[in-house]
Design a protein around this nucleic acid. Structure first.
Length: 283
DNA sequence: ATCCCCACCTGGCCGC
DNA sequence: TGCGGCCAGGTGGGGA
């Protein structure tokens, strides 16, 4: 499911309700998510107060009292619901509900059919947690810029598509937004990283454009997510996606949407993942 | 180190 | 309508 904009949308949806709420009770399904539940998870979080929520890459970090933090990833199919007073009592646990947190005034339900999501608990600085410590810079942050990226790409010998999916290089991008950003930049996904950097390790023009387009597509998607975020009772990543407005993603054999191009969108496999692009205008 | 491939799961869709 | 095969937006870990 979710890439950076969708996770940001989920975070904003939760934020509205959970801050300053205390955790009263916790239900875990008999299944674990991708990893076993943290040791003594329930007893450690019951009674704690939620004091903050933020996003880093595709992770949501919920700060609790006593310096605890929940670090949560939605995997491919994770979704949160917030039930308000009045909805709480009638709620029947659904298939694939794996975590339910009862707060004073709300109930948070985490549903994840594929169970690729994962959740950990730490009482240290979340930034040094193994999930977060090696993440690359956030798009839309100052650390994500063409100069820094050029240094990273220097001497890399693989296609730009695969590289942008690497969370340690830039964090938060997934298959959809990488495809879309490359389309907007008119860059062929197979282009080798070395072609984006001068021999002195400086960014070429195509890299400067790519950084700009990544930021642009992520920013637009967050705005779309924000604008569709009305029904907070079902905060899932899908509602945050561009939905039908992808230029290339999932449009195999359809016409290229660049006005001046009469090409068609191709699907190829790179590192086992589908890549969608127009070979005519992405060079 | 670097890169690729697989596993982890269920559900939806397509063709027969 | 049923069933098998294939596909899916993610990532940690293992092997080359």
């Amino acid at each position: 499911m979710p890439e950076l904009p969708e996770v940001e949308t989920v975070k904003r949806g939760l934020e509205e309700f959970i801050i300053n709420e205390s955790i009263k009770e916790v239900y875990l399904s008999k299944f674990s998510l991708r990893f076993p539940w943290p040791k003594d998870f329930v007893s450690k979080i019951v009674g704690k107060k939620i004091i903050s929520i933020r996003r880093r890459a595709k992770y949501i970090i919920i700060g609790l009292s006593d310096n605890y933090s929940i670090i949560a990833h939605l995997g491919m199919s994770g979704c949160y619901k917030v039930l308000k007073k009045g909805e709480v009592q009638d709620y029947k646990i659904l298939k694939h509900d794996h975590l339910i947190i009862d707060l004073e005034n709300f109930k948070i339900v985490y549903n994840d059919p594929r169970r690729f999501g994962y959740i950990d608990l730490t009482n240290q600085d979340p930034e040094i947690h193994k999930f977060l410590s090696s993440l690359g810079p956030e798009p839309l942050s100052n650390h994500f810029n063409a100069d820094n990226l050029a240094e990273t790409l220097l001497n890399k010998n693989k296609p730009i598509k695969n590289t942008l999916l690497d969370q340690n290089i830039v964090s938060g991008l997934g298959n959809i937004y990488v495809c879309e950003a490359l389309f907007r930049s008119k860059i062929n996904p197979k282009k080798n990283c070395s072609k984006f950097v001068t021999s002195k390790g400086k960014p070429r023009k195509n890299l400067i454009l790519l950084v700009k387009k990544i930021n642009e597509v992520i920013k637009e998607a967050i705005e779309v997510g924000g604008s569709t975020l009305r029904d907070f009772s079902n905060i899932n990543g899908k509602m945050g996606y561009f939905q039908s407005s992808f230029n290339v993603y999932n449009r195999e054999n359809e016409k290229c949407l660049l006005g001046s191009c009469d090409g068609a969108v191709k699907r190829i496999i790179q590192s086992g993942r589908s890549t969608f692009f127009c070979s005519k205008c992405q060079k």
